[in-house]
Nucleic acid binder design. Structure first.
Length: 301
DNA sequence: GCCAACGTTGGC
DNA sequence: GCCAACGTTGGC
């Protein structure tokens, strides 16, 4: 799977230390409170690869600029999914308190956020979805892109064809990782195709196994290897997902954007506010609305 | 291929 | 802790 991710250099903000990351302050997290950060304008950046660091995509230009999502090495994956190492996180969502959010928020804030996220869903129709099922959106790149000699493409069809639960590895962004750590078994997620001809939501999957250590970060040959992560202090996590449904009609990004204007029902959809977040939250209201954009007659169960 | 919008790093 | 430089994401 891929997932987008990356930043191979990950910092070090690791897990328990990142409590204060200035850079992200005020950025994500709040599900709805997206603070408009005053992003100072940035100078244009030179082309990548300036330093001698490990170059991430040697073949990028050749591959049409796809970006990464990584499904990385499927081979290593099989091994890992076999016996995942449990993550440090306490699994129950309301009590999730380990680690900080990348944005420098304290963990308690993280749990508050999560609770709000769940609450939101329950308020929706007054119905109780069990323990409070939550909804998410996860991105992967359906078109080929070579990273470290490996194709990182991963589409809804690849997931559908998988014989076992797929470990969503390769996420190398703290906010996205924290979202995965907050997931519970039974949660549903939209499968989003990014960095491709027609970006948009193409189907639904289910979280079938809660977060565990992303072993791909330890493998130097892996496209998403992170030298700063080690088994004593794993930095990255993944969840396992299973295919549930593929829409015949893609709910295109363009269409989602139409409902995201001020006052629109999707005005706070996290993925539209933080386009670089590969794993984002979706409220029940947003989830139901987006599903209404799928022609049920054509939807493939 | 371009570039806006970030995220990370490291000097100070 | 701040901030400029640099790298990445991902739409177009």
């Amino acid at each position: 799977m891929v997932r987008r991710k990356r930043n191979a250099s990950g910092a070090d903000l690791d897990i328990t230390t990142a409590a204060t990351q200035p850079a992200n302050e005020g950025r994500h997290n709040k599900s709805q409170k997206f603070v408009e950060t005053a992003a100072t304008s940035r100078p244009k950046r030179a082309s990548s690869g300036v330093d001698g660091a490990p170059k991430p995509n040697p073949t990028k230009s050749a591959s049409k600029g796809k970006t990464a999502t990584a499904k990385a090495a499927r081979s290593t994956k099989a091994a890992k999914s076999a016996k995942p190492t449990k993550d440090p996180k306490p699994a129950k969502r309301p009590t999730y308190t380990t680690e900080n959010a990348s944005d420098g928020r304290r963990s308690s804030n993280v749990s508050v956020e999560i609770e709000q996220h769940i609450e939101e869903e329950q308020d929706q129709d007054g119905e109780d979805y069990g323990i409070g099922r939550a909804y998410w959106l996860m991105k992967a790149e359906p078109e080929s892109r070579i990273e470290k000699g490996k194709d990182v493409k991963f589409s809804i069809d690849d997931l559908k064809a998988a014989a076992k639960p797929e470990g969503w590895d390769g996420v190398r962004n703290l906010a996205a990782r924290n979202n995965m750590r907050a997931m519970s078994k039974g949660d549903q997620a939209f499968f989003y195709h990014s960095n491709c001809k027609v970006p948009g939501i193409v189907g639904v999957m289910e979280i079938v196994q809660e977060s565990s250590v992303d072993e791909s970060a330890f493998d130097p040959e892996h496209p998403y290897f992170d030298p700063k992560s080690d088994r004593d202090r794993p930095r990255w996590s993944l969840v396992h997902v299973e295919f549930r449904r593929k829409f015949r009609n893609i709910v295109k990004l363009k269409e989602l954007q139409k409902f995201a204007e001020k006052g629109g029902i999707l005005e706070n959809l996290q993925t539209l506010k933080q386009t670089r977040l590969s794993v984002s939250k979706v409220s029940k209201k947003e989830w139901d609305f987006i599903l209404s954009l799928v022609d049920e007659d054509e939807a493939v169960a």
